[in-house]
């Protein structure tokens, strides 16, 4: 089947999509956007997190056909032109990236949380990111990165 959707502001079309394909597969294998990651494909790790009409979801659990006509934002859509989004810069600066496989999903989730809750408590951060597994960092540097991004955001206002 054919699927039309908007990804990171651009209209996209995927052809010959098998009906059982996930949005994640379409993004990665058909649209050349492998930033969203395939760590578990069962909604248990959050590495494939994208925003679907603004809402963070596991793209591995969205059937490709369900994305027809909808707006998707992936990690590739976070940076503005040449400049990194504040959350991306904060992840680099805080040392929150090791192997980096969880990073795209965490960035999309954290970015959305800061949009809703610009000054989160530590418990708020942990709750918002509890659907994103990381195996390398022990999460401490991820906490630092989100705190840093929140602080920079507040200073910037």
């Amino acid at each position: 089947m054919r699927v039309n959707l908007t990804v990171n502001g651009r209209p996209q079309e995927a052809d010959d999509v098998w009906e059982g394909e996930s949005l994640l597969y379409v993004l990665r294998e058909r649209l050349g956007l492998p930033g969203s990651k395939n760590a578990c494909e069962q909604g248990e790790c959050g590495s494939c997190t994208v925003r679907l009409d603004g809402v963070p979801v596991c793209s591995c659990l969205v059937a490709a056909g369900q994305a027809e006509g909808r707006e998707v934002v992936t990690v590739e859509g976070l940076a503005d032109d040449e400049e990194l989004a504040p959350i991306q810069q904060a992840f680099i600066d805080a040392g929150a990236v090791q192997c980096g496989f969880c990073t795209p999903g965490l960035l999309v989730a954290a970015d959305e949380m800061l949009e809703r809750n610009p000054s989160p408590s530590d418990a708020d951060i942990r709750e918002a990111l509890s659907g994103n597994l990381c195996r390398c960092t022990g999460y401490e540097k991820i906490m630092d990165a989100v705190r840093l991004a929140a602080a920079r955001r507040t200073e910037g206002v």
């Binding site: 909604g43 591995c60 659990l61 059937a63 369900q66």
Partner: peptide, 26 residues
Amino acid sequence: PIAGGTDVMVEINFDHRRPEYLMDLN
């Protein structure tokens, strides 16, 4: 029927289920 996909897609991704028809309720 598939809505949130949080059960159905896991079964499809892991090859536990191959329904003849998948019906999107979104």
